[in-house]
Design a protein around this nucleic acid. Structure first.
Lengths: 255, 255
DNA sequence: CGAAGGATTGATCACGATCAATCGCGGTGG
DNA sequence: CCACCGCGATTGATCGTGATCAATCCTTCG
């Protein structure tokens, strides 16, 4: 089950760890950040080459196996992560088991970027996940001398706020069909931005994950998917969907 | 209709402006910020007395009449505001008229704190509103030399993200009753934090505003209110509600 | 080949939306 | 002074979307 974690990678030749909270040796060659394939889409893009070396020195390459927890709601933010490969879901659980998934983090996304005292959500790996890990104290110290990076972090937080607002509109004021279409359109645009195609949309998460993200049930999500298939808007393929008429979904997601 | 705008205030003795985008003369005595009653709860609390003087020098006191627009979705963020008095609603409008209200800003809240290119929402004054206005360029210049303020701004953004996540849970996974109870509990806690009582909750917004904030209809909000009255959880008074058993609502809002 | 878990499909239900009438209050003008 | 109007809030009757309950289906894995 770990041969699908080999989708090309920057450095660190060790084999994927079967359990969470893996090693990640300090020694990392100082080109890691410079060679990092997600750097251009991440906050690190604010740094100069020499600054990248300094950052690489305090970064650990850490991997998480599928279905393992990365952070837990309420835990102190002692470590922060930059996702370099794989998909992570962030969510909160109500006492009675209801769940709201805030989003799916992918390559280039930051976990803990707002540097709060404690995490306000849990996060776990949907696929095998590779991350760039920093201890909070070291990262904060680094930040101290790099106001441009802090500013970049702040901009990223602003982007996250904008995404959250988009999602509030979706949750509060959209129909089930609009929710699913909007989810797929958002995912497509995001994949395109980090360099993917616009037709084949991988969906590593389950229908239940999608439902818990959109404020729906698993059955409703499934029904809408088949409805979209009947409308020739997409076809369902193993591991995802293939979008057909780009404009069909856009219309449903509303302009 | 403007005698209710006199709830005590720091400086600037001019009369409230009847129309939006009022004056606010540069001359402001340099104690404005130091005397500002919302400073302790606002991001400005990160500044030293002498820094406050510098900040006061680039701030304008600007007022908005009830029901006037403060910012409009899509407009460039050339000015940012710190609310010092009154209540503001931020929202997005869908083409067909559906509306999602993101939140209600009160004394100490910042409008545009994430410094994006353009506003992703509209905002208007529910009550007469008094603000501390900065031009973006001047504020950014000030920020340049005050990394601690930027860090404070970033923390505030983190708080906004946390609030947004709370609201996503509410919108996606809560029943109508839980939504209304949660709204009132959140408002109570917030008013307490900026120094208000915990029983009398002023509700300057209409039922429709509340509905559009909670993803409900005006009728459902009204029904839930009367249901809560029948349950002896609160009584409805002109301009707001009076909470009775504090724990009753908390239970409904869920722990 | 059988078990397990995710996905799909169907039948029915219920929560909250919609449609509609009335209430209550504040403002305005005869 | 009071009749009238406008608007927000409340209440009632009915509807419909999406939830719930339940039965396969499909794929993967042992």
């Amino acid at each position: 089950m770990d041969e699908n974690s080999a989708i090309a990678m920057p450095a660190a030749p060790e084999a994927p760890a079967p359990c969470a909270h893996a090693h990640g040796r300090g020694g990392i060659p100082d080109s890691v950040c410079a060679a990092c394939r997600v750097r251009s889409v991440s906050v690190c893009s604010a740094l100069e080459p020499d600054e990248l070396r300094d950052l690489a020195a305090i970064a650990d390459d850490v991997q998480f196996a599928q279905r393992t927890e990365i952070v837990s709601e309420g835990e102190a933010v002692n470590t922060i992560y930059n996702i370099t490969e794989g998909t992570v879901r962030t969510y909160r659980l109500l006492p009675d088991g209801r769940r709201q998934i805030f989003g799916f983090l992918m390559a280039g996304d930051f976990l803990g970027l707002s540097l709060p005292e404690t995490y306000g959500f849990s996060a776990d790996a949907i696929t095998p996940v590779r991350t760039c890990r920093f201890t909070r104290s070291r990262f904060e110290a680094f930040l101290e001398s790099k106001p441009r990076l802090l500013r970049r972090l702040h901009d990223a937080a602003g982007h996250e706020i904008a995404l959250a607002q988009d999602h509030m509109v979706l949750l509060g004021r959209r129909t089930a069909e609009e929710k699913v279409a909007g989810f797929l359109v958002g995912l497509r645009d995001r994949l395109q931005r980090i360099g993917g195609g616009a037709v084949m949309i991988p969906l590593p998460m389950t229908r239940e994950d999608i439902a818990d993200h959109l404020g729906l049930t698993i059955e409703t999500v499934s029904r809408i998917f088949t409805k979209l298939v009947r409308q020739r808007a997409l076809i369902i393929v193993p591991g995802g969907v293939r979008l057909l008429g780009a404009e069909a979904l856009d219309r449903l997601a509303e302009g």
